[in-house]
């Protein structure tokens, strides 16, 4: 790609970014165009990656080399599309059965081992490791933390345990459980703020990049054009309103 194309690309990038952000002021045709382009481009990208990374090397090439067994999963995959045609939608079940059965079979041992057994072990192990002399602050804090996690987990589990009525000790434990959950959700919220800002920073940084003289001030010119559009649109819509009221 020549330098000219890179500059044109910069104008596209700056323009589409500003069109998307224009929704924050109010809904407008430029945002709608960018939104619809995104839907199409997302699908187009997915399509081309599937074509060149999976279909051609994993289905087409083997068939061409005479490895015909690969036709079976390809047909099962194509059967999924039958969902669109009510009369033969049942055909798609064959594709789904493979994926669902296989996924379910692998998931059971994996989640039970990783997210259940290991987590129970991870809570109990540190308690058994407590021992020796408590002559350092860190020995005391790690012992405290081990018990605190154990205690917190039990309380949280009580909160999620709906088979008994929450009253008496159960209620107390589940209330403490809520505090642990609140600390967790607070941490998640705090981190979410950083995450969202990082994404925004990324876009602003790009806009700043395209505002340079190398890109012929793409960001500034497009932003200014959009502001002018909004001003004109404001007055014409006002005029239209007055005319309608006069009628």
């Amino acid at each position: 790609m020549s330098e000219t194309w890179i500059i044109i690309g910069g104008w596209f990038a700056a323009g589409l970014t500003i069109f998307m952000f224009s929704f924050l002021y109010k809904d407008n045709p430029f945002f709608k165009i960018a939104e619809h382009l995104y839907l199409g481009a997302g699908m187009g990208w997915l399509f081309q990656v599937s074509l060149y990374d999976v279909w051609i090397p994993q289905v087409w090439d083997p068939i061409m080399q005479g490895k015909l067994l690969v036709i079976v999963p390809a047909l099962l995959g194509l059967s999924l599309v039958a969902q669109f045609f009510p009369k033969i939608s049942w055909v798609s079940r064959y594709g789904f059965t493979f994926v669902m059965g296989y996924g379910a079979g692998l998931a059971i041992p994996a989640v039970l081992s990783t997210d259940f057994m290991s987590q129970v072990a991870g809570t109990i192990e540190p308690i058994f490791k407590i021992g020796g002399t408590f002559n350092t602050v860190s020995a005391w804090t790690s012992a405290f933390n081990a018990f605190f996690i154990f205690f917190g987990l039990i309380c949280v589990l009580f909160y999620f345990f709906f088979s008994v009525e929450h009253k008496g000790m159960v209620k107390k434990a589940s209330t403490v459980g809520i505090y642990f959950l609140m600390l967790y959700f607070g941490a998640v919220f705090g981190n979410t703020v950083m995450g969202r800002f990082s994404l925004l920073y990324g876009r602003f940084d790009d806009l700043y990049f395209y505002s340079s003289s190398k890109y012929f001030y793409a960001s500034q010119i497009i932003a200014l054009a959009l502001v002018i559009y909004f001003i004109i649109e404001h007055f014409t819509s006002k005029k239209r309103k007055i005319q309608q009221e006069a009628k």
Binding site: G122, Y184, T192
Partner: peptide
């Protein structure tokens, strides 16, 4: 950052 606090258990274990 959004999902970071969720990985505490895996790290501890």
């Amino acid at each position: 950052a959004v999902s970071q606090p969720g990985y505490g258990p895996y790290l501890q274990k």
